[in-house]
Design a protein around this nucleic acid. Sequence first.
DNA 1: AGTTCTGATGTAATCGATTACATGGCAACA
DNA 2: TGTTGCCATGTAATCGATTACATCAGAACT
Lengths: 372, 372
Amino acid sequence: MDESGPSGRPEEDGAPSSRAVRIQDVARLADVSTATVSRALASPERVSPEARARVLEAIAKTGYVPNPAARSLRSQKTYMVLVVLPDLSNTFFSKILRGIEERLFEAGYGMIISDLDGSPEKEAHFAAFTAAGRVDGAILLNGHLFGQSRDGEGTPAKTGIPLVALCEAIPSADIPQIEIDNRAAASGMTQHLASLGHRSIAYVSGPPNNILERERFLGYQEGLKASGLPFDPALVLAGDYTIASGMRAGQDLVARSTRPTAVFCTSDEMAIGLMRTLLSAGLRVPEDISVAGFDDIEFAAVAEPALTTIRQPRRELGQTAAAVLVDLLQGRPSPKRIRLETELVLRDSVAPPQNMEKAPAKITRTSAIKPT
Amino acid sequence: MDESGPSGRPEEDGAPSSRAVRIQDVARLADVSTATVSRALASPERVSPEARARVLEAIAKTGYVPNPAARSLRSQKTYMVLVVLPDLSNTFFSKILRGIEERLFEAGYGMIISDLDGSPEKEAHFAAFTAAGRVDGAILLNGHLFGQSRDGEGTPAKTGIPLVALCEAIPSADIPQIEIDNRAAASGMTQHLASLGHRSIAYVSGPPNNILERERFLGYQEGLKASGLPFDPALVLAGDYTIASGMRAGQDLVARSTRPTAVFCTSDEMAIGLMRTLLSAGLRVPEDISVAGFDDIEFAAVAEPALTTIRQPRRELGQTAAAVLVDLLQGRPSPKRIRLETELVLRDSVAPPQNMEKAPAKITRTSAIKPT
DNA sequence: AGTTCTGATGTAATCGATTACATGGCAACA
DNA sequence: TGTTGCCATGTAATCGATTACATCAGAACT
């Protein structure tokens, strides 16, 4: 009764309208049973070469594609993977997604994206979605398991399907984790700044309670300690990884009478926003203040000045997470934790502090113009 | 035999493991038939209040979620929408996706993303995917319909499911188009540059054959004509919307002996890459060359100098496309073409050319620091 | 009081693929 | 030559929800 698509009649001209080429049609044309058709596709070695050839020919002739709903109903598999992330419009995720999509595609899986958007309602929806068996597995980028529809008390997320945590480790859950060593990376950057002579290094944080943030903050403190510098709470500025929060942090700094000589922002977005604010206020980067970022997003290299930062292998992170999940889905063993390497990318936004200009600053800096 | 998830036994402790709460279980508990349960959910007005209450209670108690495969098999609906785009890692798309996801979610639809990545193989895969009835509809951001598995001769993409073209119109197809007026926007920016006194305005193009590119290029030419300026092919630089191509265009300009006084880049990415290259070569923006972009991505406002550009309502574009598609899916009528408004965003990267400094340049510029 | 209509509910067919089990033919064996 | 076993194939049950059709009770008629 609501059969009116954009085109009108369900059938016209020669072709019988892509709908309704069933396995039966193929079976009839190939003069075999439906079981043989199914087997010819799922386990070719179990049918005779002749039958297989006839089946394949019939499939080619009819353009048969198995009905996924029927297949899924019977076999309890969906060949779909859910990717849960906190904010789809965040630049940081797009390349990760791409990596995930690539690997999943290769393995024959589709990708469903859920942008949680901080909404518990959405979270509940996707929890139900998952529980309903709509996906075979999930990759979680949001740093926590979502609450189940019921029995949400003790163990979180007993979905029963394979899960993989990407970027944000989930401490309580016994699932594979793909991540970078945030702590070591943050410590490394802090020590790098200190090694250039900076004694007052500010830190622009991520959102509180965020696991990445906790790790990076620990790394920052570690780096200070390793460099023999005291930790000063006044140098910790609140951020949330967004450009806007970087600008706010910048305004905070501009308003101060005494400023740190270097600022370590835990995302490139914040670093870029912060630099913008400093520059607008007449401060120079890196001459007056050095600024470092985290992530190495595309825009880091073309920021003005080009941003010194920590490269995360984003695409590879996505690919790895997808590969691990596919392993799980196909019953293969998989490592419980994979840590990918980060890399300190030295560009122009960091230099030794002004008052000790003696040291040759630029020897470590890479070429700023590097057309990928 | 491959029943070994990460947890081990399929059943443990009290809870009967989220699997296998069927409509029958609910029916038995509520002491009604499966038909009544189904009706209580699909058309509540068709069951008595008491029965409905008992059913809802039983559902709450069991945590029942309808099996989507079964539902889909019977009703021929998937409640899934495919979003096809050329490059998932492109910043420009992320906010559009967010808009799409929001609306789809509200309407109870899921979103499957297909990153074509320029691969015909992938395209064929998703065409088959679509034909297989795996989604109820699709939003196409890639500017063309994908080839069908068979009968790909005459009409392209006779998928039979509702389609919506977003951003890149698809001339040959009779499907709703959601877009901006690229031509008018490009013409407007060109005229804006001309009105400031620029007589030599370069144009950095998108990829050839791209429909956006064609429209914007026409707009550029129109704008020149409307301003009484001649069209000079030497001022057209090849780009492909990426940062890297913007940098290449910048190098081209830097190498020239006589340079245009303004450059209109048809994406913000290119504009930012180009500015970076100019600045590195010692040229000043906007004093030596004005640079304008297109899109108004997040980073445009924090570029140095802040980028004058054309704002596309990206989230709204996504939302609108999704809303139109949902209308189609639910049998409601929908407009054939929707054009959303763009907006000229005046920032600091554009100013009158050097040699006619007399005019007051800055009166039209908006505040550069605007923490969203 | 008898008939008709309406609204709530139940029974069972159905969607299309997978797969356990059954069957039949042929080779390998004693 | 008779028996055993394997391989290719077919038959039919199955997955879980939707829905056409049947049924039945009670209200509203004549």
